[in-house]
Design a protein around this nucleic acid. Structure first.
Lengths: 347, 347
DNA sequence: TTGTAGGCGTTATCAC
DNA sequence: GTGATAACGCCTACAA
């Protein structure tokens, strides 16, 4: 029924069926207003009858646009965070008729890097958004050299459009809330030292301490990788230490949750003995006990914005100068934070 | 340096630079053993000098292979589950040189369906794996009609290769463990009624009860959607009820965790008053208190296997008959399950 | 408004 | 082992 043999229908088949030229078929599909209603209808009928779908590769070869963007990710993202950002990207991209190819850079292997770089140079991709600050390089070329529009999400790689949150501001604001609650000694659970967000958040914290003057303590825990397990490990280290801190700020909700559970296991009361603050605002933050105070990032919106910025750059005639877009987080103080416990220092 | 103007180098440029024909360049790249070492070296040098990357669209047009597969997802997946499966898919696909395009079918909208169907017919895709049991239909054609190799992951859609787990077996095994602990009344927290996994798990449970004889109670909670929030809502409903159940089995860890937290807030002791069992084995199951008993699914391996099965089907000369692959879950009983509390019935 | 025809960049089939 | 050359299926000047 649908096709003569079982090869897919091509534009010529449709043209023949409709009694018009291939040019008319092409136009009837791409810019219907340019073709007389009657022919338009005949073309449409033929298309339906033959089950015609234009071949994407052939189109791409002519038009030099793939309507596909690359999304580069990295393992270290917490799944609940990552999934929402991805949904946001998908929502916006698919609405614009773009497909999204996903590439995980977990391995940093030479093979994977070459794949990435090749993709950028092979014309399969109209642009890319990085949820990773890893720059793949192969054969002396980097992902930047292809000259495609690039967006870095939750990071600000040079030469890309950056979509960020005001994480530094929020970090400082959160710290001041803790100060207001009487906390003077803070333990910070970091992410990997080279991570963009880690650098920004720790930087904001360190500067705020500097500005706040003496008599305050800030400790940065060893290691760190955003994970639940790390949070638990950091808690064990804390328990084995002098335990001067009365509040803990984590670089992620996951580390905060890992920490929270582990210190409570050891009989430490949260928030009575210790306050805990996470970062991200994942759903699980509502489902620990006590509920986790956190800095909520607009995860879905980050994805949407990233996609929008990329699409705008793709549609621009000339490559636009790198832009920068800042979304706002929300400080959400709940069960896991409270007044600092009274100690020796109590006058 | 790299290119004459700033247009990308084409195969002809390389041929000229190396002093050979385009055919030789193509061969030197695709099947080096067919070309004399000297020429091979000259070609390689020219490629490096010009920074040549073959144009994917042109290649695709000839070869009729895109080395790209589609992954169709749906919102209802728990993020930690979904993310691991995706990593498994990516690991295997990228190792085979395949790219992965992701499409979210959250909306079920007509537009999105058409996009999907068009993709399958436009030659952009060599095959697809479904993490969704939703069948997109548009213009009277479904995603099946393109005749591409298809894999359904954690589901068994007809006409596809299915990659499954022994969830029914594990569900029954878990139930018998609860019986052995003295539980006689079980509350089940379901997923959406039409969901494949829900049907299998609930079916296994219901059958096992039937077989176990009288004197046992099985209640299926209303609604259900895998989520944390649903678990909390079900807990509130439970608290407002007669509370006959001494054990709760949830269709997902997330619902179990939502339930667990909420009943504990109301003063119910877990596992002393009530046992709770989840399903999936996400990381967060280790980080609630008590630790959540669960049925661990091999998430990463599910992804890898799905990819492998798809790639095999793509490489097969003739479309192979649908296959079926069953992976094994692990029943992990921990803090949240214990002996049934003694009640009136205690002799 | 419609049709003709050239070319997008590869691969693969032939001859040599 | 290597080189012409003809597709692959579409879009788009350009001409009618």
């Amino acid at each position: 029924m649908d096709v003569k043999d079982n090869r897919a229908a091509r534009i010529g088949d449709v043209a023949r069926e409709a009694g018009v030229s291939t040019a008319t078929v092409s136009r009837a599909l791409a810019s219907p207003e340019q073709v007389r209603p009657e022919l338009r209808a005949r073309v449409r009928a033929a298309v339906a009858k033959l089950g015609y779908t234009p071949n994407a590769a052939a189109r791409q070869l002519r038009v030099k646009r793939s309507r596909t963007v690359l999304v580069v990710t990295r393992k270290r993202w917490s799944a609940p965070f990552f999934a929402e950002v991805l949904r946001g990207l998908d929502a916006e991209l698919s609405a614009a008729g773009y497909a999204m190819v996903l590439a995980n850079m977990d391995s940093e292997g030479q093979d994977r890097s070459r794949q990435l770089v090749d993709m950028m140079f092979s014309g399969t991709i109209d642009g890319a958004v990085f949820l990773s600050d890893f720059v793949a390089v192969a054969d002396g070329r980097s992902v930047f050299d292809a000259g495609l529009p690039l967006v870095s999400l939750c990071a600000a790689m040079e030469g890309t459009h950056a979509v960020l949150t005001d994480e530094d501001v929020c970090m400082e604001r959160a710290l001041h809330q803790l100060f207001a609650l009487g906390h003077r000694d803070i333990l910070y659970l970091p992410g990997p030292a080279e991570n963009y967000n880690e650098i920004v958040r720790w930087g904001a914290l360190a500067r705020a301490f500097e500005a706040a003057g003496p008599g305050l303590g800030l400790t940065r825990a060893e290691g760190g990788d955003f994970s639940l397990d790390y949070g638990a490990a950091a808690a064990r280290a804390f328990l084995a230490s002098e335990r001067r801190a009365t509040a803990v700020m984590a670089v992620s909700d996951e580390s905060a949750i890992g920490f929270l559970n582990t210190v409570q296991d050891a009989g430490i009361g949260v928030p009575d003995d210790l306050s805990v603050l996470g970062f991200d605002g994942i759903e699980f933050a509502d489902f620990c006990r006590p509920t986790l105070s956190t800095i909520r990032q607009p995860r879905f919106e980050l994805g949407r914005t990233g996609a929008r910025v990329l699409l705008a750059a793709i549609d621009a005639d000339a490559p636009p100068a790198p832009t920068r877009h800042v979304l706002h987080n929300i400080l959400d103080l709940r069960g896991s934070t409270g007044p600092a416990p009274r100690r020796l220092e109590t006058s």
